[in-house]
Amino acid sequence: MIKTNNLENKNSVSETPQRTRTLSGRKPDDLEVIRSVREGNTSDFSILMDRYKNKAFSLILRMLKNRMDAEEVLQDCFVKAWKNLDSFKGDSQFATWFYRIVYNTTLTKLTGKKRETEKEMLSIGEDVDIRDEHADTSAATLERNRLLGALIAMLTPNQAAVVNLFYLDGLSCEEIAGILDTNVGNVKTLLHRSRATLKNLIQKKNLHEELR
């Protein structure tokens, strides 16, 4: 299948000379940025935020299906990541470590919101707009985004997380299993069910020809 791994080599340690006070003006890898933040250059943390905020926001919003809550959780995730940066040993990629924080924080938020909210969301599922307002606005793209928005709204938070991490972030099922703290089999089941849900939606609405 056509799938790019955007996170490859993101944590490669480069042999760079001693850094100056901040990393501004260069394109350092994640580990370099983390080292700089640990040395006291707190503002360098914004490099990591710029790198991951859209991807994290996509994951949170697709799981929560509520923009305001998603914005709040995104802030919490970055604050948590900053507070726990010392516990990041570099054994895994920063992205994987950070996504684990994002996933768990979002789950905690969902638990806090209780089941009523989830039911409410499912009932208005197809009307929930979680499209990117800055995205391409051509008719075909709008239709695709509308369909995708409808699909994601119908998925459970775990299915939405798997679909987002697999298709948007290009992570493997093994990496996703690590983030969700589950086994590869479960990840595959969630992915297959998500595809089946979308397939049924396409079939139900006779969108097969339109999407060709």
């Binding site: 991807k55 979680i130 369909l147 998500s194």
Partner: peptide
């Protein structure tokens, strides 16, 4: 369709 999933800003 899922492959066309985009980032949300």
């Amino acid at each position: 369709l899922l492959l066309s999933l985009t980032e949300i800003t």
